[in-house]
Design a protein around this nucleic acid. Structure first.
Lengths: 194, 194
DNA sequence: AAAGAAAAATAAGGTAGTTTAAGAAAAAAA
DNA sequence: TTTTTTTCTTAAACTACCTTATTTTTCTTT
């Protein structure tokens, strides 16, 4: 039940006092399968760290099609940062796909932490920096790789995702249809035999 | 020649002492048309703020094709953040497309500033946060919009780009060929008439 | 102003990925 | 166990976008 503090301590070293302030500004929460942590058009009030469980972050386009923009498993942060930082309606939905426990930092508490424990600003700069670098990688890959190569890369880099999320969600994350992913997998299986 | 300090002061308020420390940790530099601020496979040593001029950030895929991942004009930051933060070889190239003046903060100076002027950590958190939000928007759009709609959106949101950068670069930025963009524009022109 | 180079337009044929629809397999519920 | 629901597969027709090649226009340089 406590992955959170060890995670924070990977980035910075907190004094006992600072740790106490941090503890006072977080909340533990449990979600059931299917429940939403963030909902489209509502303001995202907190950023959530996954203690256990799994979630998907998705977006509904104007035709009502779902597009998965991120997965979340243990030790990942989820939320809609765009909505959080401007306290404006969210573009994304964050939905739990199984019973999920999270640690949440609410907007006001985060601002207070930035003020009272400046080291926290560093943690979040680092978190966002890494998120930004992966987002850019994703853009580049969607430009220059075929669906097949993107799938192979996902298998290599995040095998846990391919195991824990259903195929139609993997397809959506890769930006292709489930039918086409099925076709790719079929082809890869054939190649493996010969 | 001085857009930099006013830009910083939009985000935070510096005391005269802090401002002096900041000034001591930046460098002004001029580039000619065609010169590179960052080069693929070399370590990106600084982050650059554009005072005047224009640049493109691009990536060469394994077939040697260029893919533009970002444009930069006055008051934009450019560089390869992935390379900068880990001090590892850059994936991207940042090239000036005309005479360009920049303010640069070198890696070591940035670390020193984070330590000595903690407010600076806030500025960079904010810069990266915004960059991350736009990167995510871009991922979503590339998934759910057609090339035509992406072009229309670019025209609406950043008309300056469409005016200041040649069409084949705009096409590359949108993730399509120059021929296809030409076709789209042709079609839009026809529609405008009738 | 002319010459040369770079950028943009046009057109035809090709391919990666989509759509639709039907059926099979697997998982969840009863 | 059977039923119901969810997920995955297969295949054929279709579309958005690509490739290649040629021509025209615009920008640079002298």
């Amino acid at each position: 039940m406590d992955r959170f503090l060890p995670y924070i301590n990977k980035h910075i070293q907190l004094t006992p006092t600072e740790e106490a302030i941090l503890q006072a500004n977080i909340k533990y929460k449990n979600y059931l399968k299917g429940q939403y942590i963030v909902q489209n058009d509502e303001i995202c009030r907190c950023h959530s760290f996954i203690e256990s469980g799994k979630v998907r972050t998705f977006y509904l386009d104007k035709n009502g099609n779902e597009h998965i923009v991120a997965f979340g498993i243990e030790e990942w942060w989820v939320g809609d940062i765009g909505s959080l930082i401007t306290q404006s309606p969210a573009d994304f939905n964050v939905q739990c796909l199984e019973k999920t426990q999270v640690v949440q930092i609410y907007y006001e508490n985060l601002q207070r932490l930035y003020r009272d424990v400046p080291k926290i600003e560093r943690v979040f700069r680092l978190i966002i920096q890494n998120a930004y670098v992966s987002a850019q990688k994703r853009i580049v890959r969607n430009f220059s790789l075929t669906a097949r190569d993107r799938y192979l890369l996902l298998l290599e880099e995040y095998p846990a995702f391919v195991q824990r999320f259903p195929q139609y969600m993997i397809a959506s994350y890769l930006g292709i249809t489930k039918e086409f992913l099925s076709q790719i997998r079929n082809q890869l299986a054939k190649e493996a035999k010969s």
